[in-house]
Amino acid sequence: MTAGERLEFPPWLPTYEEPPPGHVSGSRLERVLRQGHFAVTAELNPPDSADPADVFEAARPLVGVADAMNATDASGANCHMSSIGICALLTRAGYGTIYQISCRDRNRIAIQGDVLGAAAMGVRNVLCLTGDGVGVGDQPGARPVFDFDSLSLLRTIRTMRDEGMFLSGRRITRPPRMFLGAAENPCIPPLDWRPERLAKKVEAGADFIQTNYIFDVPVFERFMARVRDLGLEGRVFILAGVGPIASAKAARWMRNNVPGIHIPDAVIERIEKAANPAEEGKRLCIELIQQIREIRGVAGVHVMAYRREHQVSEIIAESGVLQARVPERNRASSTADFR
């Protein structure tokens, strides 16, 4: 399509940009990581609303702090606004986003189509997840799909991006330029095999990893030592998951009700004994970030502050990990007449 023809589609038809040399997507997150900066990503609390203003409201506490915001995909099997909708809105306004895909709710036909749709909307980062079982969510009677698992999903999107074809073998004329992410959970069983599974995810196509919450630094250090032994340093960017604990009660509830969360008793005790538990939870999070950033092979942090998003900018500022960097909104990619 020529530039003139593009103008015939008001109000807004962006050009589909190819990534710069040495990049797979050209996303802000990819550029920051490849430049060797310590990256910050943060989880956005998705609204239960159809109003786009509520998306920007949810994003506000993370603006100027996160290199990319993760829009969760019905996390914990609870229904909220879709990740693709949130990412499309924020990306068009110039913010870095990470589109999360859970294998729980959609089959291979839906997912491959959505990846093209997201890429067309300008989304350049995707996080491939297995997803929690439907039983823990707000609609436990739903049919679990799990047509893909996170690894076959990674390999499929990599095939779409690098080979330019669907898993059916059919050609894609403009492949989706996605920076491919996966999750890992270093502190839960089987501890011995978690690093091997991370290696498998890199083999499947992962460019970056966001881990689940790390509250147990010694366990995470052992994990990272094994990751380095497996030769993964330099082959994948690892962002360690952190988050502030609101209270001892909240921590216990999370440990018992949210799948895959390990919080040592000592951590909960520290929060319990504190005069101001919420402040102590924030302090702990800052300390964790400072300890984690010293571990060789860690490329950044991923802050998950569910319902404590207001604390994220203070946590990042006080931890000092951004140094003088400010993840600005990209005004060039946003559009004035976007409605």
């Binding site: 294998c103 729980r104 297995t130 997803g131 929690d132 079982g133 039983g135 679990p144 799990f146 698992d149 996170s150 690894l151 076959s152 999750a183 890992e184 959970n185 839960i188 069983p189 089987p190 095999w193 599974r197 498998k200 499947a204 689940n212 799948p259 895959g260």
Partner: peptide, 21 residues
């Protein structure tokens, strides 16, 4: 596997190596 993963385990394994679901 209740999620029928072909490349597991998922991130929800319980202490002692028990199933999330």
């Amino acid at each position: 596997c209740p999620k029928q993963l072909r490349n597991g385990p998922c991130g929800g394994v319980r202490p002692g190596g028990y199933c999330e679901v």
